[in-house]
Nucleic acid binder design. Structure first.
Lengths: 235, 235
DNA sequence: ACTTAAATCGAACGTTCGTTCGAACTTTTG
DNA sequence: CAAAAGTTCGAACGAACGTTCGATTTAAGT
């Protein structure tokens, strides 16, 4: 057995990928497609065997179980998207801009790796015990980053909204994309990210206060008195 | 065999539910829970047998296949939510108000029938051929209603945004709720619907135009010239 | 070239799957 | 109460499931 048998991909150290690593990555890629199309439970090891061109028994040289295979796919996908996000967020910026970076990073990766992200979103609950908790930790970290970004925005502009609902609504908008996005019909990731960012950012910028009916100028004047906040919402 | 053997529930005519109908509804309810917990593929007929207290063979007196069982659950759930929506939309109202009715109807039903709605959302792709197309028709109708409501809003306020992206973002926000909503932590449906409505409505009311950075007053004045629109966004 | 280790495979294991069938039980009908 | 219809069940079917094992083939080290 070559290199580190449990690694799904070349590590962060500059170790060149061995034959084992490359084959592993190949299998992971094919398995991702199969899981995406048929679902984790619906996909059989024989389906994976067919898709990879490797014998049924041969697969078990790389994975000790079907469950661990799903785990490796999900972990690699999630780790990658978090790593990319952190890199992009290193350059400081306006809170609004940072949230737009978050959305863009998510959607870009989502649409470039649609199968993997669908497997991540759609099979989020099937992993139990050890696998489940390790993945939940990454998920929580990603969630916390988004919460942090929104809280920045909140404090810097004196906004008032439920961070929890906002974050989860945003994830909903973004993750649901795997059910409808069609590259032949829908715009590129950057445009989609901008449109979703427009909707979301304007929404939270106005917080939980009731949205006023048209031509109701009276109470609007009263509420919008304090300074230069909420510019995100005005055209 | 009693009454209409293919009916999942009492029909719209005032026929009193037979013994068959009641047992059928019981089984559907239990099956919904099982499908919700283990997924359609992950749930076995033996799981359903255990949950309903009926023998394995006995189930097949009510359903000709596991696939049809899922179909009946999904069809009943979807039909009900569409029917309720139509009833609520009979009373005309402001476009904004009508969209809020749409959101409230969806979330109320979602949270009151969380298991059924998770099965509807999460197992949306597993039904093929005949079952799939019949369900897709209901789904399309529901989708079209939402498109219609948004177009009303668009025209009545002279807005400019991508209806497709807006509708699908809204569905994402709403449907994702099955992954996170916890009745012990999260507010009641009405509050959640209002918060999501705030975010969404304010977002689309400002359309695709770039959101301006704080304290950028110059171009804002230029864009917000035409009349009393977009009140939905101002506090 | 020969040895050793890595990689792959065919064949099979025991289990569980969805579904069927005829017999038995229960309720309704005459 | 007997007959008919409606309902439930135990037992079994063949197929497909995830996984294992010993043997075989391929690549690496010397």
């Amino acid at each position: 057995m070559a290199s580190v048998p449990t690694a799904a991909q070349g590590s962060s150290t500059a170790t060149p990928p061995t034959r084992y690593d490359k084959r592993m990555a190949e299998i992971l890629a094919h398995a991702t497609e199969v899981f995406c199309e048929k679902g984790y439970e619906g996909a059989s090891m024989r389906d994976l065997s067919r898709a990879t061109g490797m014998s049924l028994a041969g697969l078990y040289y790389y994975f000790e179980s079907k469950e661990r295979l799903l785990f490796l796919i999900q972990k690699h996908t999630f780790t990658t998207i978090v790593a990319r996000l952190k890199k992009r967020l290193e350059h400081l910026g306006d809170p609004e801009e940072r949230i737009r970076i978050f959305i863009l990073n998510h959607l870009e990766y989502f649409l470039a790796n649609q199968a993997a992200m669908k497997v991540l979103s759609h099979e989020a609950e099937v992993l139990k015990n050890g696998f489940g908790t390790e993945l939940a930790a990454i998920k929580r970290e990603y969630y916390r980053i988004c919460v942090g970004l929104l809280d920045e925005l909140k404090h810097s502009r004196g906004l008032d909204f439920s961070t929890r609902i906002a974050v989860l609504s945003l994830f909903g908008m973004m993750n649901w994309i795997y059910t409808w996005h069609n590259p032949r019909v829908d715009a590129d990731p950057a445009s989609t990210a901008r449109e979703m960012g427009d909707i979301f950012l304007c929404g939270v910028a106005n917080g939980r206060k009731a949205i006023l009916k048209k031509t109701d100028f009276n109470s609007r004047r009263k509420e919008s008195s304090n300074g230069n906040h909420n510019a995100a919402c005005k055209r």
